[in-house]
């Protein structure tokens, strides 16, 4: 708990001034890091040193720092969020590293996610996909009682499994094709499973997958890297379900 062992690490970090800058790797040293530092706190420490030295700190997206907002987005040693099972990079702790380790830190890389600066990418494409149909078109007010539609527990549970997606985009970052099938599949499946979502199921799956393509995401080749990258462990069965919904929609 209170051991004072500290680590020194070499960081090789992607630095890019803006979208038009080609960008390059820079090397930094992270000193006095304990095993209790989270990965982002380790970067905070590096940044404090950089600022005091009059250098530009490394910018990265982060907000809740408890693994739920989906804002943090770093590829650590080639793995989105650092590769620890079901863990966002903000929840990754330095005890997973050893003194003297060299760590590569890169932004999400995908055609649909242009880099804004350093480790920050533009993920509005994910919003665009949801806007294409990731909802039920109910009005505020004028809806039936919550218990008017019975939903069997297993269905509710499976829908929740899909709904756990935090929209971080790790699935896209992990996919060799930069595809957003797991993200889209999770939302399509959540709403296809629930009776409330069934009325619009046909249009939804068509529109959302169309938006997905138009945003520049690649196609699925069933590598399942997305599931491995997902900090919430969203299962690729939801891609299968979306495929099924898509096929069904062709005959509707």
């Amino acid at each position: 708990m209170s051991d004072h062992k500290t680590m020194t690490l070499t960081l090789i970090v992607w630095r890019q001034k803006n979208a038009n800058d080609p960008g390059k790797f820079e090397t930094y040293s992270a000193k006095n890091i304990t095993e209790h530092h989270s990965f982002l706190e380790m970067l905070d420490c590096v940044n404090e040193d950089l600022i005091l030295a009059g250098k530009e700190p490394i910018v990265f997206d982060h907000d809740c720092r408890e693994g739920i907002c989906g804002m943090c987005s770093q590829v650590v040693n080639g793995a989105p969020h650092g590769g620890q099972d079901r863990t966002t990079v903000c929840q990754l702790h330095m005890r997973k590293f050893k003194d003297g380790d060299t760590i590569y830190i890169e932004p999400w890389r995908a055609r649909a996610f242009p880099i804004i600066k350093d480790l920050i990418v533009d993920r509005t494409a994910l919003d665009t996909i949801i806007q294409a149909g990731g909802y039920t078109s109910c009005h505020t007010g004028g809806v039936p009682d919550g218990n008017a539609i019975l939903i069997p527990k297993p269905i509710a549970e499976e829908a929740t499994d899909a709904a756990e997606c935090i929209g971080c985009g790790a699935c896209v970052a992990g996919c060799p094709n930069g595809a957003a099938m797991l993200f889209t599949g999770a939302k399509v499946s959540q709403l296809a499973l629930l009776p409330q979502g069934k009325a619009e199921a046909v249009a939804r799956v068509k529109n959302m997958t169309k938006a997905m393509m138009e945003c520049g995401f690649g196609n699925c080749t069933n590598h399942y890297e997305c599931q491995a990258a997902c900090p919430k462990g969203i299962n690729v069965k939801f891609i299968a379900r979306m495929n099924r919904e898509f096929l069904k929609a062709q005959f509707a």
């Binding site: 080639g78 890169e106 890389r109 055609r111 996919c175 094709n177 995401f217 196609n219 590598h223 890297e225």
Partner: peptide
């Protein structure tokens, strides 16, 4: 599809890490 998919991630990561592929 292969050509499209290659374009899906124009720049590769410096470290390649494969989990399930």
């Amino acid at each position: 599809l292969t050509i499209e998919n290659r374009g899906g991630r124009p720049q590769q990561y410096a470290v390649k890490s494969v989990q399930k592929a």
